[in-house]
Simulated assay, not measured.
Amino acid sequence: MMRRTHELLTETEYPITTDELVERYGDQQIELADGTETVGEILARLDGETYEHKEDAEFAIYSAVSDRAIGRKGYSDRDPTPLGSPHGPDQVSF
C-alpha cells in the first residue's frame, strides 16, 4: 500500500463506512506489482462495511486488490505444485 494511503487511513476518524472511504480516498492510487488501482476500484469489490479501526480498513484494501498485485501468478518456491495445476513443471518421460 502506498505510504500516502497508509497516512490518510491513520489520520481518519473511525468508525467509517466503505462508502465514506471511497468518497474521501477513492481516487488515491495504489501501486501494484503490475500497474496501479485506485482505492475506489479496490473497495468496489467488497460489500459495504463499517470499519472500526485503521487496521480493519487496511486489511479490507489488502484483501481486495486484484491479481495485478501478484508478481508471478501460480509461483511458489516453497510448496509443491498442486495436482492438476496448469502452472506446474513440464512432465518428463524416460
Results as ranks from 00 to 15, higher is better:
E37M: 02
E37V: 05
T38H: 00
T38N: 00
V39I: 07
V39E: 01
V39W: 00
G40K: 01
G40C: 01
E41C: 00
I42L: 04
I42T: 12
I42R: 04
L43S: 02
L43A: 06
L43W: 08
A44I: 05
A44P: 09
A44Y: 00
L46P: 01
L46K: 03
L46W: 05
L46Q: 12
D47T: 07
D47I: 06
D47P: 06
D47R: 06
G48M: 09
E49Q: 07
E49V: 04
T50H: 08
T50Q: 14
T50W: 08
Y51F: 12
Y51A: 05
E52N: 15
E52G: 13
E52Y: 13
H53E: 14
H53S: 15
K54H: 15
K54F: 14
K54A: 15
K54Q: 15
E55A: 13
E55N: 13
D56W: 04
D56L: 05
A57Y: 07
A57C: 09
A57Q: 09
E58H: 03
E58G: 01
E58N: 03
F59A: 05
F59H: 09
I61L: 15
I61M: 10
Y62K: 14
S63M: 11
S63D: 14
A64I: 11
V65H: 10
S66R: 12
S66H: 10
S66G: 15
S66Q: 11
